[in-house]
Every structure is written in structure tokens, then in C-alpha cells.
């Protein structure tokens, strides 16, 4: 059983080769997570597993058994968009939109990592009690998500504005 966007799913995984990405897209019908490279290089398949951002293409569906998975379809609140999604629209944080579901899930997981005290390569002090979400930090922490349209400035601005006062 995998809880997907708050709903338990008992869809049987008959082939252990099934990736979590293919399971979500083909078996459950959630097309938000995208297949970009299918080899862990682009981040388009990023989803949250127990609140942590992971690559669905490199995760076997069987490994998610008993976990809670959130895709971009599940990040909104009360039938509306998450504030981060609103900020992506406000700041033109995309062009074709293919990478956007992965960017959004990744940024949500990234903000939680900052709140939990996970350092980054550009953190001024690796042992600091907390980290500021500067544009440099955002760019480093989001380096696993590629945008071939090059909408990075808008993506960084949207994330910076959304998490100015910490994770929401």
C-alpha cells in the first residue's frame, strides 16, 4: 500500500522493475511527475516521499511500499494552488512548463531541508544552527532540477519570495 496525495492506493506492483515514476504515471494516472531523462539527471520526476524530495525515476515502486508520496497534484491547499505555485505564475518561473512539477516539489522539499538544518555547499558555515535562503543557496540547493527553457531567474525569484519567512 502506498499513500498517494493523501489517499491509500493498493494497486499491485506485479513487476519489480516498475519505477515509482512509471507507477504514478501509468498505474495511478498521475501525469504531473514528468519523465525527462529517466536517469536521475534532470529532476523533472521529483516527488515527495514522506515529505522528502526524491527522484521517482530512480526509485523502484516497490521501495515506496508503506510510504506517503506527494506529487504536484497533491501540493495545493483547499482546492487552490500552493503559494509557491502562485509565485511561479507571478514571476514567470517557467516557459514550456515541463520541468515545473519537479521544480515545485523540489522547492517544497528544499525549504523543509533548510528548516531542518541541512547545510549546502554554499552555506557560509557548515555547522550553523540555521541557514538563510539567499539566491545563491536557492541556486545550489535546486541544482538537481534543470530547466531547458532557462527560466531560472523566475524560478529563483518565486522560491525566494515564497520562503522569505521560512517554509510555509
Amino acid at each position: 500500500m502506498i499513500v498517494i496525495n493523501g489517499t491509500p492506493h493498493d494497486t499491485e506492483i506485479t513487476d519489480p522493475r516498475r519505477s515509482l515514476l512509471d507507477h504514478l504515471r501509468e498505474d495511478v494516472g498521475l501525469h504531473g511527475p514528468k519523465k525527462g531523462c529517466d536517469q536521475g539527471g534532470c529532476g523533472a520526476c521529483t516527488v515527495l516521499v514522506d515529505g522528502r524530495r526524491v527522484l521517482a525515476c530512480l526509485t523502484l515502486a516497490a521501495q515506496a511500499e508503506g510510504r506517503s508520496v506527494t506529487t504536484v497534484e497533491g501540493v495545493g491547499r483547499d482546492g487552490g494552488l500552493d503559494p509557491l505555485q502562485e509565485a511561479f505564475i507571478e514571476h514567470d518561473g517557467f516557459q514550456c512548463g515541463y520541468c515545473t512539477p519537479g521544480q515545485v516539489c523540489s522547492a517544497i522539499g528544499m525549504a523543509d531541508e533548510v528548516a531542518r538544518g541541512v547545510p549546502s555547499r554554499v552555506s557560509p558555515e557548515i555547522g550553523a544552527a540555521s541557514f538563510d535562503l539567499s539566491p545563491d543557496e536557492i541556486r545550489e540547493r535546486m541544482s538537481g532540477n534543470l530547466c531547458r527553457c532557462g527560466a531560472y531567474n523566475g524560478i529563483v525569484a518565486a522560491i525566494e519570495e515564497t520562503y522569505l519567512d521560512g517554509p510555509r
Binding site: 526524491v54 527522484l55 530512480l58
Partner: peptide, 23 residues
């Protein structure tokens, strides 16, 4: 780790991406 073995944390955050490090 960050206080007494900072070089371990530094090496890890210099590798891969946030998503991969989570797994």
C-alpha cells in the same frame, strides 16, 4: 557530524543533488 566531523558534511554536500542525497 557538522560540529566534530565537518569534513564529512562538506564532502557530502559537494556531491550529487538534494534529491539524490535524500535517497
Amino acid at each position: 557530524v557538522r560540529r566534530d566531523f565537518p569534513i564529512i558534511a562538506e564532502a557530502i554536500v559537494n556531491g550529487a543533488s538534494g534529491q539524490i542525497r535524500n535517497t
